[in-house]
Design a protein around this nucleic acid. Structure first.
Lengths: 356, 356
DNA sequence: GCAGTCTACTGAACTGGTTAAGTGGACAAT
DNA sequence: ATTGTCCACTTAACCAGTTCAGTAGACTGC
């Protein structure tokens, strides 16, 4: 199967990609001897080994991944399917950082990443994993964005595909999971607002199909209740218009009932919330304080800059990669807790306006 | 090689992954007959074909990619190495959109994407391509971020690795290239500013190691010269502090010499520029108009919102994927021009303050 | 001098799917 | 009845590695 395109002559076998047989032939050895030499196994003399390695280097030999996998080796690849709308800025920053961290660890452990980007469609996601696994392309997968009653977990378990869940941990499963203590993060956020004198707050979160959104809402409710604060929770979407609409809904009431602080589910929601609050003729942080549950450069660039709960997504991705690499090698690390988010206090949170 | 983990019994061959041989055995046929049936080739009866397909479906068979590649099939994978700092917001949005478009087309054409994220290090990038290619993991690669005197082009050509360059076109190479008419985009930007009465403008661009930054600078210079406008060009960096520093440099002069408009190389640079202009006690767009060469949600969320040249990066990625898929199949589409950017006029550009 | 052991290799089978070449039987034409 | 032509299938080689089971030769021990 010669390569297409301008290939006059085609200097050598397989478009210049030498095989172990070429090395063997050039040195008058058998394929087996060359294989032993290249893999540092006993059974070849020191002198011969050196010659083999030199020849491999000179010819620019690389082992055929297909041949190795066919013999039963790991594919050296892990799969990741993204089923989210790429238009969401929060997701973009999360994803690129997560990916960079993930990839760094995988590279260190000799793996690569097979990526697929699809719309929000869990069926296609599991079908992709099933196909990749069936085709022996991957050794395992990373599951992002755990959903309420997520079907992917049971399906991957049934297919015996090694997987690391970013979410959980799940009670009934042995799948390793990277989980965040959203309750603790909620405490951090609510405590900050309490300290500033806020007694009536709102939480405008993302879609409740995501488990982390449920956890956050529950965390905020409990943290507020524990402090005797009133709290209004609204399910919104990650898009700007949704966040703006719910901001109008929550804050467009009499000053006496109006929350004095809003915790948004993401930086994009907070940014659009700021604009909506401005439309309502309210001042941030004078009338309303604003806090975002995700941090990003956006939070620092808009005015006022937005106080935010910050998580190291690079480390998150790296941890996920490490857990999966371990799992593929037979070591299940179980439930791993991520470090708590830190609060970045900026200009959008301030003292509550004293009632009256 | 049984999978690790809880695998009591291990129901079937290769952890539940049946082979063509299993199908053949279960039906009392030869492997060849099954292969012909599964691939829709002549040589099997209609009845037999149906039985084979039914058995494959029931067993959940997928063809082993390794086995096919070993026989000479394409890998069905294209490679992409990112060598940029993931901290750059502009890059994040560009990348995720580009990726989504790229992946969509690749999926339609039966390919997947192998991804690697590394720091800014061209040597490691080419080494990764070389290894992937040597290991028969990929059919081709996408080259992003063309650099001045980019070594990657010649190296990939020498290795005969099919590649599509996002940049170019190059005079001496037959590598397909997706190129942008930066001169035309510069015309659009400068014309907009001229129409608003600006006669003295600045361009604060990104690093000149990138070919597109050079093209843009040249485009701005020529478009301005053609209109008799004065122009100051500064090489900056994609980070916020660099953009802020150069903004102070360019605008911290007497009002008589001060440019009345600045074209920034990216949305992040523009956002940080806005903050710097505010620090200088200048008003946007009253004293200075601001234009960004990349658009994103950030440009719409900061105040004032930033006028920007917008490019459809989803379509860009899709086009790159299509060109590469064509190239792998032997069809070189040569130099393909991307659609011109469109100007999104927002609040940051306004009439020039009349001199005096 | 001959068995025993070790070293340094070779030969061949094997992985799963593809494919050229071959085979046996049914059927038609002559 | 013979020849030819299909059809529907089988056999076996092949891809590039890995690995098990040899094996030739050198060396040791007695």
């Amino acid at each position: 199967m010669p390569r297409k395109g301008p290939d006059p002559g085609g200097a050598g076998p397989h478009a210049g990609r030498p095989t172990i047989g070429d090395i063997a032939e050039s040195l008058g050895l058998s394929k087996a001897a060359v294989s032993y030499a290249l893999n540092g196994r006993p059974g070849v003399g020191v002198r011969t080994r050196e010659r083999v390695l030199a020849a491999a280097e000179e010819l620019g030999w690389h082992p055929s991944n297909s041949a190795r996998v066919l013999r039963g080796a790991d594919a050296g690849v892990v799969g990741l399917v993204l089923s989210r709308d790429p238009e969401l800025l929060t997701f973009e920053t999360f994803f690129v950082h997560f990916l960079a961290g993930l990839e760094k660890v995988l590279a260190e452990r000799g793996s690569s990443l097979l990526l697929r980007v699809i719309g929000d469609h869990p069926d296609e996601e599991i079908a992709t994993y099933r196909r990749w696994w069936g085709e022996r392309r991957i050794d395992g997968v990373i599951l992002l964005d755990e959903r309420f009653r997520d079907p992917r977990v049971a399906q991957l378990a049934a297919l015996r595909i090694p997987a690391v869940l970013c979410g959980g941990p799940l009670k009934d499963w042995t799948m390793p999971a990277l989980w965040t203590d959203h309750a603790a993060d909620a405490e951090t956020a609510v405590e900050h607002l309490q300290a500033l004198g806020h007694r009536r707050i709102a939480h405008i979160g993302g879609p409740m199909q995501f488990v982390h959104e449920r956890s956050r809402r529950r965390g905020v409710r409990r943290a507020a209740a524990r402090r005797g604060m009133q709290v209004v929770c609204v399910e919104s979407g990650y898009t700007g218009p949704a966040a703006a609409r719910h901001t109008h809904e929550v804050l467009g009431v009499d000053a006496g009932e109006r929350p004095t602080a809003v915790v948004y589910g993401s930086d994009v929601m907070a940014a659009n919330g700021l604009a909506a609050i401005d439309e309502l003729g309210l001042d941030v942080p004078g009338d309303v304080s604003v806090l975002s549950w995700d941090d990003s450069q956006l939070a620092t660039l808009i005015r006022p800059s937005v106080s935010a709960l910050r998580r190291d997504n690079l480390a998150y991705g790296a941890l996920a990669g490490g857990c999966l690499a371990d799992l593929v090698q037979g070591h299940n690390r179980g439930a791993v807790q991520l470090p708590a988010s830190t609060l970045e206090v900026r200009d959008s949170t301030g003292p509550a306006r004293t009632a009256g």
